[in-house]
Design a protein around this nucleic acid. Structure first.
Length: 658
DNA sequence: GTAGGGTTAG
């Protein structure tokens, strides 16, 4: 079977300080300073000399009694200690683990490299990274296992930078890395809570791997590929993938995930097809399918998604929770919320992720109250919300403008669920308040943050400034954003948009020059539509589309007729100081309108037109589509980068709040 | 001499 879920770590309350707390060492007080001479050869793993009583107590899970027996055992063997350490880990008991550690210190067994490794692993599992570090620091004879164990522990705890410092120290001491070392240090590069990138360290380790002849090692190369993927270096990742002499399902899945996660869903589906065609002996597993489903969701490829659903059923992967959660998301993100909900209802078992999928599904469709209701239902069923549950439900509040409800939920995080808000939660709150034109409150949230506000937080504020045209705050946000992510063209464009709306044309010019000087390009708007299982993509400047003339003509006609009925083009998104007609012509050519026109021509009456857009819908496209839905009597469903808009009979499901 | 590693859901 598959082990998908990492065990939930329980936050320990206030814990006794290890080593110097007499209550934790009750059987043998003051032991810590009185070390016996080295005893590492003493037990020699002679399991015959094991204490059978302790063994059976450990098996029963009776740790307390096992520790009491240990206090009377004159000569605990290595194996006895190993069982006890494992038992503490399984019972998730840090105080008992510390108690046990003191026993080991007392008879010098903490210097046994095997047991020291086990202790580090134990502390890592028990979320006590300080103690893991202490074990490492106090061990005099450090095997590669001990180094690796600490690397792993620190990486899991998010201390990537520290791992890399230690790795450098290890190299200076001329301790040779083994195949495990490389996977841990590569993972460390992406396991950093700082905002600085450790990509350079990763590249350096790539060099070490090649120099030491590990380029044929499938585990290491897959980790390397994944590291590049997580930094968004798709080209580097694919180069590693192509050069791998041996590839297995995991390597293929990692590469497919790389494309899915980095905005290349077409490539992800293409690689999946290649995997199926060229490698009959490789069977995609549940992990592969999850990434493939994500690609379908990104493309809103409903028919593709259904095909994958069929394959998943045939392969019997439909009982695996992550797969089903991804299916719920696929259907919802393809615009079919009901189908997603039906998949959810048929699940025999659900975990918090399945619930989160459903909550965010309702959220992106604008059903904020329903999302809150599902969130509460989940808690009623005895599940604890995860940090992502809050991201989902706060996001849902934000889309629906449920400010007070969102504030209450945010308050309940720490008080009710002991979850400390991360940058993502703060970003949700800034978005929630900012969208509702409570920008000062949003800014105050940022000022009061206990952690460093990252680009997500400032980006949320900037987005809200764009909606409500607040130049001053936008300047504050971008001054930070240009430092934090200097190459994100979107931030420059948003600032220029705001200046343009304020008619500060000189400032618009300045930002545009800044953008050019840094060699950045605005991400072009792109809209897609799926007609009879084929996906058509539109951009506003697109001379290659054979139907483009026809689409432009249709749009011009529609616009003239709708203007008579009250449609007023909104041209404030145009960043050039042009005359009004020219501006109108530009917004009429927006990709989303082209897709709408294409949908009107190529689909039957009564069919919903489904469109996806890679950016936020502009004001004019929004009001244009509202008019069209009434004028042409068609239902139009548009997914923009944040949420869904269902246009029916002249109104939008977002209530013009997006 | 023992032990430990890569891809995934929101």
């Amino acid at each position: 079977m598959w082990a998908f879920q990492t065990p939930q770590t329980i936050q320990q309350p206030h814990l006794p300080k290890p080593f110097h707390n007499p209550t934790a060492i009750s059987p043998k007080p003051q032991c810590c300073l009185a070390l016996r001479p080295s005893t590492t050869t003493r037990s020699n793993g002679d399991s015959n000399n094991n204490n059978p009583l302790i063994q059976s107590l450990c098996k029963q899970g009776n740790l307390n009694q096992a520790l009491q027996v240990l206090a009377q055992e004159p000569n605990p063997t290595q194996h006895t200690y190993e069982l006890l350490i494992l038992s503490c880990t399984r019972q998730n008991s840090l105080p008992q683990g510390i108690n046990l550690h003191c026993h080991l210190i007392h008879d010098g067994s903490d210097q046994d490299p095997f047991l020291a490794t086990k202790l580090i692993n134990m502390y890592s599992e028990l979320d006590s990274i300080d103690n893991a570090r202490k074990v490492f620091d106090k061990t005099r004879k450090r095997t590669i296992y001990i180094w690796n164990a600490l690397f792993r522990a620190l990486t899991l705890a998010g201390h990537g930078r520290e791992v890399l410092d230690l790795y450098r120290r290890m190299n200076r001491l001329r301790v040779p890395s083994d195949r495990f070392t490389y996977t841990y240090v590569l993972k460390a590069c992406v396991a950093s809570e700082e905002f600085v990138s450790l990509l350079l360290n990763g590249r350096e380790i790539h060099g070490h791997i090649l120099r030491h002849g590990f380029e044929g090692h499938v585990h290491i190369m897959t980790t390397l590929l994944d590291m590049y993927a997580r930094f968004g270096c798709v080209l580097n990742a694919s180069r590693v993938f192509d050069q791998m002499p041996v590839k297995n399902v995991v390597s293929w899945s990692a590469m497919i995930a790389c494309y899915s996660k980095n905005g290349k869903p077409f490539e992800a589906l293409e690689l999946f097809r290649k995997m199926m065609l060229e490698n009959q002996d490789l069977l995609p597993n549940s992990v592969t399918m999850v990434s493939v489903l994500q690609a379908c969701a990104a493309l809103a490829a409903l028919e593709q998604g259904k095909l994958m659903h069929g394959y998943i059923l045939r392969r019997g992967l439909d009982s695996i929770l992550p797969v089903v959660s991804a299916l719920v998301t696929v259907y919802a993100r393809c615009g079919n919320l009901e189908l997603g909900h039906r998949v959810f209802e048929r699940m025999e078992k659900r975990d918090v992720v399945s619930w989160n999928s459903l909550i965010s599904s309702y959220g992106i469709h604008g059903f904020g109250r329903k999302a809150i209701q599902i969130f509460k239902e989940m808690i009623d069923q005895g599940l604890s919300p995860s940090p992502i549950s809050f991201v989902s439900v706060l996001g849902a509040c934000s889309h629906a403008g449920l400010v007070e409800e969102g504030k209450v939920l945010f308050e309940s995080m720490v008080r009710g669920h002991k979850i400390f808000p991360s940058v993502e939660h703060y970003a949700c709150m800034v978005d929630l308040l900012g969208r509702a034109n409570r920008l000062d409150e949003a800014a105050k949230i940022i000022d009061d943050m206990r952690i460093e506000p990252g680009p997500k937080v400032w980006g949320s504020l900037l987005g809200s400034c764009r909606i409500h045209c607040n130049v001053e705050l936008a300047e504050r946000a971008t001054s930070r954003l240009f430092e934090l992510e200097p190459t994100n063209a979107g931030n420059y464009v948003l600032l220029a948009d705001i200046y343009a709306e304020a008619k500060m044309w000189n400032e618009v010019k300045r930002v545009k020059m800044l953008l050019e000087a840094r060699g950045l390009q605005k991400v072009p708007g792109r809209s897609c539509i799926e007609i009879r299982r084929k996906i058509y993509s539109f951009m506003s400047v697109d001379e290659f589309n054979p139907q483009i003339e026809q689409l432009h003509a249709l749009l011009l006609n529609l616009s003239m007729e709708m203007k008579e009925k009250g449609y007023v083009p909104d041209t404030k998104v145009v960043l050039y100081d042009l005359d009004p007609e020219e501006k109108e012509r530009i917004v009429l050519g927006h990709s989303e309108k082209l897709a709408v026109a294409f949908g009107l021509i190529n689909s039957k009456k009564g069919e919903t037109i489904r469109i996806t857009k890679n950016l936020r819908l502009c004001e004019d496209c929004h009001s244009f589509t509202k008019f069209i839905s009434k004028f042409a009597n068609r239902e139009i469903l548009v997914r923009d980068v944040n949420r869904f808009h269902l246009f029916q009979d002249g109104v939008c499901s977002c209530d013009d709040y997006w």
